[in-house]
Design a protein around this nucleic acid. Structure first.
Lengths: 114, 114
DNA sequence: TTTTCATTTCTACATTTCTAGAAATGTGTG
DNA sequence: CACACATTTCTAGAAATGTAGAAATGAAAA
């Protein structure tokens, strides 16, 4: 996820999607997701200014999707994009606690200074 | 910051520093920071297993420092490392709010579908 | 069914990033 | 001062990543 957000273009896409939120739907399984939102073309327009979709934006959207940060859904000819709120909550959680427990395999072999 | 955490080696260093917290001190300005913590050598030992400092770890520590995620302080011959709690708080904040406001320069030129 | 529109995949190239060894810097000790 | 120790900087090569255009796919409209 951090790697995905590490690219400036992807961060812009992510922030654009975060602030252009559409209506929500609750699935049977209970998870919430957006029903409508910007299409790939609209994302591309907002980010690059061009009115044709570039392969670069498509590539970055795929990376964000692979990282689990966004979800996409076909809607006729278009693909509708939205952020994955669960992923955002997970990252927020990761940074919330002041101290992480048990994140090092074994520190017994680490030599400590006096 | 995301780019810095996007590298697996750097993420490991970051997590190691996060879980190996030392005593804290409060500066005049009010900010809190660690007084002691692992040295570069100890970080290197924990991450690579080797007991000699590698230039690679030094490189990654510099990246984390440039990103503002960690701070380092000279302590005699050693450099003592610790996480920058302020930076962590800032990231936590970034993900906390469900929706970001005003993160797009101008969306008036974005063509919306019917 | 042919065409058109929206988007993705493929390919090649340019750029960035990571890694490792050698040399340089800084700091305490004999 | 010379030496040992801790760490950083420099350098070059290897690996990964980002970009752009062309071709391919998928879905609706004519």
């Amino acid at each position: 996820m951090f790697k995905a957000l590490g690219d400036p273009t992807r961060l812009r896409i992510f922030e654009y999607l975060r602030c252009s939120c559409g209506p929500l739907a609750v699935a049977d399984a209970g998870e919430i997701r957006q029903v409508s939102g910007p299409t790939v073309g609209e994302v591309c327009c907002c980010i690059t200014g061009a009115d044709k979709i570039t392969s670069t934006i498509s590539f970055h959207l795929k990376e964000l999707r692979n990282a689990g940060l966004i979800v996409m859904e076909r809607r006729g000819k278009h693909m509708v994009c939205s952020v994955n709120e669960q992923a955002i909550a997970a990252i927020a959680d990761y940074f919330k606690s002041t101290q992480i427990q048990d994140c090092c395999e074994d520190t017994s072999n680490v030599k400590r200074n006096p």
